[in-house]
Design a protein around this nucleic acid. Structure first.
Lengths: 226, 226
DNA sequence: ACCGGTCGGTGACATTGTTACCGAAACCGT
DNA sequence: ACGGTTTCGGTAACAATGTCACCGACCGGT
């Protein structure tokens, strides 16, 4: 058995972009990080909780959302398995009053990298830097996309897209109107109205807490032609 | 005359966070960067133009905005003198289709740091890393703020805030209704309506291309009590 | 069965976005 | 100065979205 066995078999393989790291760097990562497992619903980071760690997700998803003063919420993006919560690395060093919070949407298994180790690796490894900045780019692109949508897209188009996204290939979406409203940063009544219209057209069927997509093609088509 | 004279007298002093760099690092920065001066209106970066440099602004401001498919625009944030265009560093390595573009709003003097030097300094200097990540945090916070506003704030409040921001203490704002619409990501007609209402209340006076703020207190008060 | 909380429905209304115009003011070349 | 062009702002009708107040149906527990 070679010494590097541990590193090779470790969680590193979950992350495209980390595999390319030097073996030595990989070993540092594995040795100095900590495995955590949190149940669904846990607030992973948020206002007040200064996150002293970079989180790399092995399993599950984390929903990052923002709450306005008036109490309304909007989902900014999701961090999936194989991705990292890089934005916290920036937020923790400067402006602590970032109103965004991260919530474990499912049971989550992850690896925590302490800030000091993160900093050391950014210094030591070009591949790690690429990994970090790519992750940043991904998130920032997501934010641009969110801004574009809420500023310029029609509600019906956004809802249709979101339903398809949340269905993930299945034919039903388990979500209350209120949850969908949060996803899109709008009010529950607006969602109810839109879903009624979709139902009237035969695109969906509703029951308490779930929505059946009966005409996926029509929903997808909304974006194209209008 | 000491060797470090050049570094000490250089543009480094414009940037809080760079002064703390080791002298050696400062000298690298000064030696390997390039001074540029561009006239107002120049597109500094944008879709298609892969920015191979980090920009540090010495004078002027750069407006970063996004254009939707439908042609409407929204201003995301501004980069002022003493700040940097860090987001481009991320965008240039990963997703090139970022729809955001940067426009010189005034004549701009800046320093360009090539990507390779940027990378080298991130590796070498802890202070430089702090500088970079702080700049990121600042921008990301700005984006969160934009999202919060367009999703949850009333138009009149946003317009009042924007007028005050653009006045910068003066009592007139030089901007067309169309420009203000772009600032807030809305339509020109909406701005015209709101300004008429402001005028009716005696808060502003309008003439072609300029708006006089005649009751700043009232405009500021809009946010507080509603 | 009762109770409290969640979920969705509804109607009236306010705000914002869209469309399609219009005339006035500034700009420009001759 | 003149006429043509562009930019700027105004207007009205309408569509879409957000807000408010309320309601009954359903769900879980006891």
């Amino acid at each position: 058995m070679r010494m590097s066995q541990a590193a090779e078999d470790s969680w590193i393989g979950h992350f495209r972009g980390l595999e390319r790291l030097d073996r030595e760097v990989q070993e540092t990562l594995v040795a100095r990080s900590r495995y955590v497992s949190v149940p669904a619903g846990t607030v992973v980071f948020g206002p007040g909780k200064s996150p002293e760690n970079l989180l790399l997700l092995l399993e599950g998803t984390v929903r990052v959302q923002q709450t306005s003063e008036s109490g309304r919420e909007i989902v900014l993006y999701r961090v999936h398995a194989g991705e990292s919560c890089v934005l916290t690395t920036a937020c923790l060093l400067a402006y602590e009053n970032h109103a965004a919070e991260g919530v474990a949407e499912t049971d989550v298994k992850a690896v925590m990298i302490p800030r000091t180790v993160f900093d050391e690796l950014v210094a030591r490894s070009e591949s790690f830097r690429t990994f970090v900045f790519s992750a940043y780019a991904r998130r920032i692109t997501d934010l641009f996309h969110v801004i574009d949508e809420i500023a310029f897209q029609r509600m019906d188009v956004r809802l249709a897209q979101k339903l398809i996204e949340l269905s993930r290939g299945a034919d039903t979406v388990k979500a209350t109107h209120a949850v969908l409203a949060t996803e899109l940063g709008t009010a529950r009544e607006v969602i109810s109205r839109q879903l009624q219209e979709f139902q009237r057209r035969g695109w969906v069927e509703q029951s308490r807490g779930t929505i059946r997509l009966t005409d996926r093609a029509a929903l997808e088509g909304l974006g194209q032609d209008g």
